[in-house]
Nucleic acid binder design. Structure first.
Length: 225
DNA sequence: GCGACAG
DNA sequence: ATCTTGTCGC
């Protein structure tokens, strides 16, 4: 699977929804194995027409940064709940091209299969990259659940009728839980396990948290700094 | 018709 | 996401 064969980004919202329906069957929910390099991606928007994307790669054993890249690009697609990949995907992929190492899995700031059409940004990008991906959202989009206990590491499952599509995880006491769901080539438990392993001392997992940190600095320095 | 709605 | 100061809590 290569992203060049999937579709173009410059499409209407209606077409975007059709594309998601066409791609959902391609998602593979297989267990995650032999993970060493974990990447985290995040986006920021300095103004209405530009987006900044950062990717930070960590060695899961040492939790040290192996590589990080950051790029900026003009954005056209507006933010529409359910169509996040069409707004952030292009900038993310530009950053991805700058990466020298190949991560074993990528964590995104958004949903995986916990999406109306099972194609959150993590799932969509997973197909483009043909790599395992995980969606780690800071808030709810789709699925039913009960609030997990206010205890570090506790979690409940996210359901779509009787199907488990993700987990609601309390990574930090007193804070809102995270909505974790597999994107591609990963299953719910693998996504849950890796996410908890990356949440060392903050609510967000290190990969995504560090990428966000980078993106914010870059945004304040300016597009040319 | 009404409420929900990743970033 | 972004605009923004002080402020409550561990």
């Amino acid at each position: 699977m290569n992203y060049r064969n999937l579709h173009a980004w410059d499409v209407s919202a209606t077409r975007a929804v059709e594309i998601q329906k066409e791609l959902r069957s391609l998602i593979e929910l297989t267990p995650l194995t032999d993970v060493e390099l974990v990447a985290g991606a995040d986006l920021a928007f300095p103004d209405a027409k530009h987006g900044v994307a950062a990717i930070v790669v960590l060695n899961i054993s040492t939790m040290r940064v192996v590589e990080q890249v950051i790029v900026h690009e003009t954005v056209n697609f507006p933010y529409v709940p359910g169509l996040l990949a069409f707004r952030e995907g292009p900038v993310f992929l530009k950053a991805w091209q700058q990466l020298r190492v190949l991560p074993d899995v990528v964590m995104f700031d958004g949903q995986g299969i916990a999406h109306p059409r099972r194609l959150g940004i993590a799932s969509h990008m997973g197909l483009f990259l043909d790599l395992p991906t995980i969606g780690v959202a800071k808030s709810h989009l789709y699925g039913s659940f009960i609030e997990p206990p206010n205890v570090q590491g506790s979690y409940t499952f996210l359901y779509d009728n009787n199907e488990v599509i993700g987990a609601v995880v309390r990574t930090k006491v007193g804070n809102k839980p995270l909505f974790v769901s597999p994107g591609h080539k990963c299953d719910v438990l693998s996504a849950l396990k890796l996410t908890l392993r990356c949440c060392t001392k903050h609510r967000l997992p290190e990969p995504t948290r560090l990428a966000h940190e980078l993106t914010q600095k870059y945004k304040h320095v300016g597009l040319f700094g």
